[in-house]
Design a protein around this nucleic acid. Structure first.
Lengths: 196, 196
DNA sequence: GCTTTTACCATGCACTCGCATGAGAAAGTG
DNA sequence: CACTTTCTCATGCGAGTGCATGGTAAAAGC
């Protein structure tokens, strides 16, 4: 077996090129040629790892899911209390700086795209399940620790919290809210969940 | 001035064709030809009313805004209390049946699209302003009527409520939530805002 | 009845698209 | 060395893209 190549690395490289194209020129500009150019490889090379455009987009979407998972795990690890984990996690998912806007632009594009593709829809559902159960778990932990009110329905609160975060994304990217206002909205909402 | 034609009607006709194309085949499938075919007119006729594709999309986005405004006004008119208006308005914006899913699919596509186009972003901001001030107004009225707790920040509550509605859209369209669950989430959230 | 204005249409152009194909370079094994 | 396998590339194909152009039919004003 010659010319041993790390397929995983190549796929990641392609996925990240897709991300950049989506961010810079929009989902409509994603094409095999454009992505190949962005990835610095020939079109044939891209086709070797990804046979169709749909597959390429799915790869990029799955990579986003992995990336989000990693980011959340990373920031959550530095917090001391469940409520801190909760707040920091949601903040990490909001477009409050350039890097998080980057992620959210791509995420928003896939929200629209996933409605038209069952494969992408399935990937989305998996991402929702993971994130929502993580958030619900943190809410329950915060309740046990006496940080959040005991009467809250952790599952519903997680859904509402995450829906809020997702729903504020476009309005923020489009300039209706400033990052400060978004953070204030989050804290306002979290405040009412507090125990006492 | 010969062959007098209702331009407004023609533009609306084109906009609605764009909506159908977005809904049926996705934003990527929107082209002058595709829209012309959907509208049952020649490509040249479409070009007469809309000179560029961007203009066509902007027209379709503005029409969505108008449509939403009309729908909200219509359902709100049949309610007796501010809280009923609030709840019914938000329900009207959620993808709980086929017609509202239709609207939300298109809206979601434009959320992604508006991030890449300043014209569309401006149209979005205007839509947000109108809807959010309407919601905030209803919250204040409900507070005055003693239906909602007086200590609530009406502006922030409106933002959170609408963000929740927007943020639940993709998850619902993709099948993560059932319409019943979404309605239950809304009622769960509204319940905690009640006076008492 | 001629001109002007409005509305519409068919077609052409340069370009891009997704995807398929076949050739060939690189790297390991016998 | 030949040989196989893995990887990469250039190119071609048919179709579709946004947009521009030139022409034409119809109705109103003079």
């Amino acid at each position: 077996m010659p010319k041993i190549v790390d397929h995983e690395a190549r796929r990641r490289h392609i996925a990240e090129a897709v991300h950049r194209v989506i961010h810079d020129k929009g989902m409509e500009s994603v094409s095999l040629r454009e992505v190949a150019a962005e990835a610095g490889m020939s079109m044939g090379a891209v086709q070797y790892y990804v046979t169709t455009k749909d597959q390429m987009l799915l790869l990029a979407l799955e990579r986003i899911g992995i990336w989000i998972g990693e980011r959340v795990a990373a920031v959550a690890a530095h917090q001391s209390t469940p409520l801190d984990v909760l707040r920091t996690t949601v903040l990490e998912l909001l477009p409050l700086d350039e890097e998080r806007s980057y992620l959210n632009r791509i995420g928003l594009a896939f929200q629209a795209s996933s409605v038209m593709s069952e494969n992408q829809a399935a990937a989305m559902r998996m991402g929702y399940s993971h994130l929502l159960s993580f958030l619900a778990e943190q809410i329950r932990a915060a309740q046990t620790a006496g940080q959040l009110a005991a009467h809250l329905d952790a599952g519903k609160e997680a859904s509402i919290l995450y829906a809020f975060a997702q729903g504020i994304v476009n309005a923020t990217l489009v300039g209706h809210y400033t990052p400060k206002e978004v953070a204030a909205l989050l804290d306002y909402h979290l405040a009412r969940l507090r125990a006492g």
